[in-house]
Nucleic acid binder design. Structure first.
Lengths: 407, 407
DNA sequence: AGTATATGTTCCGCGTTTAGACAAATTCAT
DNA sequence: ATGAATTTGTCTAAACGCGGAACATATACT
């Protein structure tokens, strides 16, 4: 039961029905391709005539194309199959992280076209924008066969205002109120969209084509690495909040008397489960960025820690198990607060999922209010899926498939 | 940017445009009444002819009626004003609480028609239903002039499945999987809707007619009394969650090593700010319901405590200030997690708002991640507004005004 | 009384869904 | 091979609703 906002509504015009049905048809082609006009009509429960008209409109905009005839199953005329037209057009996804920046080229369906390339992140914004522009141009000219680029999506680890194209605050990059979108768009001559990494990850799951992802009307993506990022999806839409800061579960406390967090407060979930927290636990000292790290700890990653744990290092295992427990306790907060249909979790620590899953789950059950909540599906998203890059791509590729605003 | 769910969408039919515009017109009449057809046409940015047809449809369903002619401002024909038709029809709201149950009769606009009556809650469900039915019938026959009753809405302090009409779990009433809706509907011969109290309060704010409430696309209602209930509103819709349990911020921890909570976990926000927690702090002992309370504490309420604090009792003031601080710390979690446009807060403790507001606000700022967040509007909803009862009423009155499901 | 202006109704045009008919294409039975 | 059955895709007419304009009605000002 949704209330109509009496100060911001959209009246149905003559073309509104068509607009709605056109988008539904487009989405059905996206999820069910290959599919015929007759299939569409059945899926939508409309006459074939209507489906035909919708299809011809989509064809004329070359959003879809007619592929080969399908083999008819029974008897009767063979169907002409329809596909999303992602020939000769591509999208670039960029993932800016504290130390490295990653680039991926995909088609409009989000299918990977090239390899993921990366380079060291220069925190000087202007320099980074120029290098990014140079590299993207290079990649696009190297892979001429991928065709024209429809746009560039950028995931940034920090608070982002996508409407204005500005990064309001990105602590790990020391950026504050930086205009990232427009200079990059100018340098490239291609439209650019930017978004917070956590929200981008959530977006990637919402718009993922492969398959069982659909059901979850609301879900949550938890990304655990240097910090903790959370993207919340409600009714198929990423929750932005009033100031684009929704999803900061990383700074919800486990214990207000806990360790100091980079945000200035104490006892934030992030300060218990971030990679740095896990490593600090192993080395028995505070590794927070203030003081320089010594030789041993400087290039030691959570993956290394997990490797040691798997090799039988009891202290390493203890550190990881401890993180696992705090992970579960924090997830319980998210589940109690939002009761999502599904939780996705990504980050280096998930490479140890087989080790930690029982601990996470039991800690989760310890604090969830209901048995349903404790049993909430948790899906690990491996790093190879590149959720941030996929989300960045979705920033550009998804709007064409979004539901029209109505009422 | 919302994704269309390819397994649960609604195709636009021939009548869909009309349905959408009809609801918009109805809502505009609701919020702007008295309003003329020409006003409507201007508000909706459609021709007067269209507005006229929408109005005649609403008139024929007697959802609205034509009132007296308005005084024309300049020259020209005088407009005929339109009003929501709430003559001879009413709605009953019921608020079941641990000790007492409250009843209120309103018109379809949610305007109070009689006085709020109440009686002691009998925890035996069958007995309560019979008494409730008897009293509601009595009230409706006493106030014959209010006309036919369109439905009864019930707010229940616990986990509710509105679709099934069942109370899954209400700890304070010791109910578990109870069918409340259907027996009451049968006993009354009137449709009944039930909902969780926290969500009902949020609903009441969403559908409140008076005034400035509109803007908040997303908001949160926090109700602090025996327990802590939270209702979350996103895009003008109350967030239910996968198992109807969204909004349990009361059981998000402040400190996982904190006091034991009635839910079984430790350090829940609720265990710091509930009325019992505040009183326990004053009396210096654990008043949780397990052990019987002695003479002094048994009938001593938070309002009494506040009175003592205002009268200069330093110990009372300290107890309240302590609660205020924990309130702010917990609100920070909600704001960090959801970044709502506005927070509503209700409950006995808010009668001391002038005392505690600065403390709440500073605790809030202490943990909110951004200055925006720390400055989030907080609105106190006084008990006299009866948010639970208003929400219960909205369960029945609001669906007629809700946006149609489309796409 | 005449003019200007605002409201509300009516009519027609056009876009879109709905229903149904029809041609084209293909398989199966005879 | 031929015809019947079946499926796909197109086309046409009807119904519905927005878009635009004309028209009658009502009121105020000159």
């Amino acid at each position: 039961m949704r209330k109509i906002n009496p100060h911001d509504f959209k009246v149905a015009r003559r073309g509104t029905s068509r607009e709605i049905n056109r988008q539904i048809a487009l989405n059905l082609i996206r999820t069910h391709q290959p599919v015929s006009r007759a299939d569409l009509a059945r899926l939508m429960n409309v006459r074939r005539g209507v489906a035909s008209l919708l299809v011809s409109e989509l064809l004329s905009e070359s959003l879809i194309f007619e592929g080969a005839m399908g083999e008819s199953v029974g008897r009767g005329r063979r169907p002409t199959f329809l596909f999303i037209d992602s020939r000769q057009r591509c999208v670039v996804g960029v993932d800016i992280r504290a130390t490295r920046t990653y680039i991926l080229v995909t088609d409009l369906m989000g299918r990977q076209l090239g390899v993921v390339s990366s380079f060291q992140t220069n925190r000087e914004v202007d320099v980074l924008i120029q290098e990014l522009a140079r590299r993207i141009k290079q990649i696009l000219s190297d892979y001429k066969e991928v065709g024209a680029c429809e746009g560039v999506g950028v995931a940034v680890p920090g608070m982002v205002d996508p409407a204005k194209g500005r990064v309001m605050h990105a602590p790990t990059l020391a950026w504050r109120d930086v205009n990232l979108r427009d200079p990059l768009a100018v340098a490239l001559g291609i439209p650019v969209q930017i978004e917070n990494s956590g929200k981008a990850c959530a977006l990637a799951q919402v718009w993922a084509t492969r398959t069982d992802v659909v059901a979850a009307g609301s879900s949550v993506f938890v990304s655990v690495s240097d910090g903790v990022g959370v993207g919340i999806v409600v009714n198929g839409e990423v929750l932005r909040g009033r100031h684009n800061t929704a999803g900061e579960f990383g700074h919800v406390p486990l214990s207000i008397d806990g360790p100091r967090c980079s945000c200035g407060a104490t006892g934030c979930w992030e300060s218990y489960v971030s990679n740095l927290a896990t490593l600090s636990r192993y080395f028995g000292q505070d590794l927070s960025e203030q003081r320089p790290r010594d030789m041993e700890t400087a290039n030691f990653s959570v993956e290394d820690l997990i490797a040691r744990a798997r090799a039988g290092d009891a202290k390493a295992l203890a550190a990881i198990n401890s993180t696992a427990r705090y992970l579960g306790l924090g997830l319980a907060s998210i589940i109690n607060a939002l009761d999502p249909g599904r939780v996705y979790i990504g980050g280096e620590i998930t490479t140890a999922w087989s080790l930690i899953e029982p601990i996470v789950r039991s800690a989760l059950r310890e604090r969830t209010l209901t048995d349903f909540g404790g049993a909430t599906e948790i899906h690990v998203v491996p790093a190879e899926d590149h959720p941030r890059l996929r989300g960045a791509v979705a920033l550009v590729a998804a709007p064409a498939f979004a539901a029209p605003m109505v009422a």
